[in-house]
């Protein structure tokens, strides 16, 4: 049986990279004594896969990891047993059984939602930013941007990859909400969008705090959180 675990990552843990986090979870699961399934072979490893690596420096409210169990554990027990093995900065939010034939987390991700915050005095007044954003995004047919890859430079159109781009204010901070294409087909990083926007304004992107709010899959032409799939048992 497959279980999807949703967790949050915050505080100092944002500096723990993806590979290190995987190793952290392998050990945590071993300590929790959950009946995880191991692969065959001389060096068996836990059957475990993550939805999408989170960049170093970013916090998250919606990370996903799928595991396989050899026997049923009630969701509340599973969640508690895993939570007991967490350090400060990782919180287990859900422990849900996936329906038979459900796509794994990594294959199902199509979009990611981000919250990016910076100090208003580091850029332009929020109102002005919002108007600039409208010109840059809402009213633009295409947003050409140069992407540098190992194979060289190529120009891509950002417009269809940005599903939502909002700018708002909280106190003296600017909050930017981005929903971007993610996953194996069309993946775009929030920093790249931010850089493109600010370079359009002729300035450098500000130092900011980035949070990935959640990951989504597409169902009936609308976005569905990965956490909404499956059920507690």
């Amino acid at each position: 049986m497959k279980v999807r675990i949703k967790f949050a990552k915050y505080g100092a843990m944002k500096y723990v990279g993806h590979l290190d986090l995987m190793r952290y979870f392998q050990k945590a699961i071993r300590r929790s004594d959950l009946p995880i399934r191991y692969s065959e072979g001389f060096n068996p490893h836990q059957i475990m896969s993550f939805a999408a690596p989170l960049g170093v420096g970013m916090t998250s409210g919606g990370e996903y990891m799928d595991i396989e169990l050899t026997e049923d554990v009630p969701s509340a027990d599973g969640l508690r047993r895993l939570q007991e093995q967490m350090v400060e900065g990782v919180e287990i939010l859900q422990f849900r059984y996936l329906p038979d034939g459900a796509k794994n987390a990594m294959a199902s991700v199509t979009a990611a939602k981000y919250e990016i915050r910076w100090n208003e005095r580091d850029t332009l007044p929020t109102e002005q930013l919002r108007r600039e954003k409208e010109a840059f995004y809402d009213n633009a047919a295409a947003i050409p941007a140069v992407k540098t890859t190992k194979k060289g430079e190529r120009t891509i159109d950002l417009r269809p990859l940005i599903r939502e781009f909002l700018i708002g204010q909280e106190g003296d901070g600017v909050v930017c909400r981005l929903t971007l294409s993610a996953g194996s087909a069309d993946n775009i990083k929030p920093q790249f969008v931010l850089d493109a926007f600010f370079s359009h304004l002729g300035m450098d992107a500000p130092a900011c705090g980035m949070k990935r709010v959640d990951l989504f899959t597409e169902k009936d032409a609308r976005l569905l959180s990965l956490g909404e799939i499956g059920n507690d048992r």
Binding site: Y10, G11, A12, M13, Y15, V16, G17, D20, Y24, K27, A28, V56, G57, Q85, V87, E88, G89, A207, G209
Partner: peptide, 28 residues
Amino acid sequence: MRKLALSDEILMRIDKPARYIGNEWNMV
């Protein structure tokens, strides 16, 4: 939440910042 001795700005500029944050499992 635990405070860190190094600022975000510095931690983002260096290699393997997790070397400097402590917080490991079984830390006293």
